[in-house]
Structures are given as C-alpha cells and as structure tokens.
Simulated assay, not measured.
Amino acid sequence: MEIHNGWDSLIIQNEQIRNITGLLGNYNGDPEDDLTTQDGHIISRNSTARDIHVDFGLTWRVRRQHSLFTYPIGKNYSTFQNEAFTPMFPDPAQTFTPEARNICGDDEFCLYDYHTTGRADIAGATRAATQTFKSIQIQAEPVLNIQIHCNMLRVKLIVE
C-alpha cells in the first residue's frame, strides 16, 4: 500500500489481478462467476436479491476473529455488526395499489420505496430522481474513450 497526496493506493501487478475476488466480483472478464462466495461456490446472476444476500453477500461478512479494525474506547466489533439484520427484499410477485402504480408506473425503484416506506412523497422523489438520471444518460455523450494498456493497475481507495 502506498500513500500519494493523501490517497491510499493499492498497486496490483497484472499477474495478480486474476486472484482478486470479493463483493465486487472479480477481474477475469466473465460476469457469470462474479457472484463467487468466499468458499468458491458460484451463485447464479439470475438469483433473487434475497438469495444473493444470503448465499453470496453474507459469506463475505468480516467475522470478529478476522477483523483488522481497531475501535475507539467503548466500541467493539459488535457495535458495528448486527448479524440479525435482514434487509427488505423486492418481491417479484408483489402487487401494488393503484396509487403506487399512478405515482411510479413501472419504475421498480419508486415501487420499492413506496412499498417499503408507504409514503407517496418518497416514492415520488425516487421517481423524479430516476427520470432525471435516465434523461442525463440519454443526453450524455462520451467525452473521451481511451484504452490504456500497462503493466500495473492502480486502484484508489477513498478513506473517510
């Protein structure tokens, strides 16, 4: 690890890049194995969000005995871990009220927020943000497309 201008940089040699795997997938160019569990099992990309969370994501949870973190006085591993927490997952069979459909149309993010919070104002804000994002995507043109080939890949880690 190196520090450059206040940034932590992790420098990985090309021959090491194929050994990287984790929550963000791997770098072998095959998206079919990006959901590889910590013990090497591959989870299908077509799995439900619940299955991906349980069968993939939780395998990468940092366990107390493997944690490299240090904690301030009065805090410990358990302060920052809630192993009983289960997020809400979208239900593909979920039916939505006419009000939800009127606000959201087919916007899955809006429908999720409406279902999760029960609040039309939050769903409406999500719908507006999604529409703005899609509009920007449509209007945006690549400014520059450069391919770089080098012996090293530099990854910047932002530490807050």
Rank of each mutant, 00 (worst) to 15 (best):
A84P: 11
L68E: 14
E99V: 07
P92A: 01
D55G: 13
D33Y: 09
P142T: 15
G124A: 12
P87A: 07
N14A: 12
I43A: 02
K134N: 14
Q65L: 07
Q16H: 12
T21H: 09
L144F: 04
S44G: 00
S78M: 13
N46G: 12
G118I: 00
D34K: 06
Y77K: 06
D33Q: 12
P90W: 13
R18M: 01
R63V: 01
L58G: 03
P98S: 03
L10N: 09
I136T: 05
D91N: 11
D55I: 05
L68C: 15
T59S: 04
I20S: 07
A125M: 11
D106I: 02
D34F: 04
S9M: 12
G29I: 00
F85Q: 14
R64Q: 06
E32L: 09
G118E: 03
T79R: 04
M88T: 09
I42D: 01
L58N: 06
T132D: 10
L144M: 13
K75V: 00
S47Y: 08
S67C: 13
A140I: 04
S135V: 00
Q81E: 14
R45K: 09
Q65N: 10
T95P: 03
N76D: 09
K134M: 13
L24D: 11
A128Q: 11
I52N: 08
H66F: 14
R119C: 02
V62I: 10
I12H: 02
L24G: 07
Q139N: 15
Y114H: 06
Q65W: 09
I20N: 06
D51N: 10
I43R: 03
T117V: 02
D107T: 00
A120N: 02
N19T: 05
A129W: 10
D39E: 05
Q94N: 08
T86K: 11
A128H: 13
T130R: 11
T95R: 12
N26C: 09
D33G: 10
Y112C: 05
H41K: 11
L24H: 03
T86D: 11
G118F: 03
T21K: 11
P98L: 02
T86R: 12
I11T: 08
D107I: 00
P98K: 02
H41A: 11
G124V: 01
G57N: 06
L35R: 01
A93N: 09
Y27M: 14
L23R: 03
S9Y: 12
N102F: 14
R127V: 08
P31W: 03
M88Q: 15
H53V: 01
Q65A: 11
P87T: 03
H53S: 05
I103H: 08
C104E: 04
L35M: 01
G57V: 01
C110E: 04
I43C: 01
V54C: 09
N46Y: 10
P90Y: 12
F109Q: 13
F56N: 00
P72A: 15
K134S: 13
K134T: 07
D107A: 08
H41V: 05
D34G: 07
F69M: 14
H53N: 07
D113T: 14
F85L: 15
T21N: 11
H41T: 06
N28M: 00
G105L: 02
E15Y: 14
L144C: 06
F80A: 07
P72Q: 15
T130N: 14
